[in-house]
Nucleic acid binder design. Structure first.
Lengths: 144, 144
DNA sequence: CAAGGGTTTTAGAATTGTTCTAATGTATTG
DNA sequence: CAATACATTAGAACAATTCTAAAACCCTTG
């Protein structure tokens, strides 16, 4: 609750602290993107959609910067990359352990709420490898 | 067993039958690709890799044809498309219900053997939608 | 608070995987 | 074997993403 609240009401200084903690300089552009990304609850964005939103919010920045920033945030653990579509890459502000619904029809990603999903019977990782993450994608289609 | 056997030792006439059954004309190119795809057990290919293999096997065909054919085979239910990497699209000759290991490091896909994997606790599909498929991807990294 | 040095940002070019196009070639049907 | 419908092709076009080199910036130091 506490963290949700502070997230939702994030002040500029919080965002600056967040960036510093991640080892990233708090530039105008990064702060603007943080604002859009972390102001509300969990979100899913693409580079293009985020660029558009930032623009509408009055922040002029180049698409290249959005790409750079998304990758920096991802390496810093502030975002997670989600691949469900060959065309575009999604970034999820929810970095916790969770899974996704994907509505192919509309190219819409949704978190699967809670940690209720349990996966049993996975074989162990092949020799020389180890499991990095288990991802479940539930592909949806319009009912009818 | 029977089907595995006939698959492994597929004669040209079998492949022609397979194509006809799928409603596809048995052209030289499609037969060549079938040969490469279905001669051995389950496989994972990309358009590029399949094009390369077909070439080595003496079949000259254009990359565009490989793309066309992969999509036709997919709609016909002969292949399944697997998306685990933003860059390239994989096609899997195993169309049954199963999941995947993905070695990001080497861009290698592997089937998760058997139908031992069980997923519990999935919420029901959002209103107006229904589940088309549930995909599990286990991302692997080199052990270190 | 001005200057300097390492980051960042940027516009545009380059790259990559894939799809489109319009001309040519091939399987099928009668 | 002619007619017709479907397939193949090379290359152009495309969309998402990455690269590049130059300009702008942030932040420390003097």
């Amino acid at each position: 609750m506490r963290s949700t609240l502070s997230r939702a009401s994030a002040h500029k200084s919080d965002l600056v602290a967040k960036l510093r903690a991640a080892g990233l300089r708090p530039t105008r552009q990064r702060i603007a993107l943080c604002k859009v990304l972390f102001a509300t609850g969990d979100r899913h964005v693409t580079a293009e959609s985020l660029h558009g939103e930032a623009g509408k919010a009055g922040a002029e920045l180049s698409l290249a910067t959005v790409y750079n920033t998304l990758h920096q945030f991802t390496s810093a653990g502030l975002l997670r990359q989600v691949i469900v579509d060959g065309d575009k890459t999604y970034f999820d502000t929810n970095t916790g352990d969770h899974h996704h619904f994907y509505l192919e029809d509309q190219a819409v990603l949704m978190d699967i709420p809670g940690d209720t999903v349990r996966i049993d019977g996975l074989p162990k990782a092949p020799a020389g490898t180890e499991i990095e993450r288990v991802e479940v994608v539930v592909r949806l289609k319009p009912r009818g």
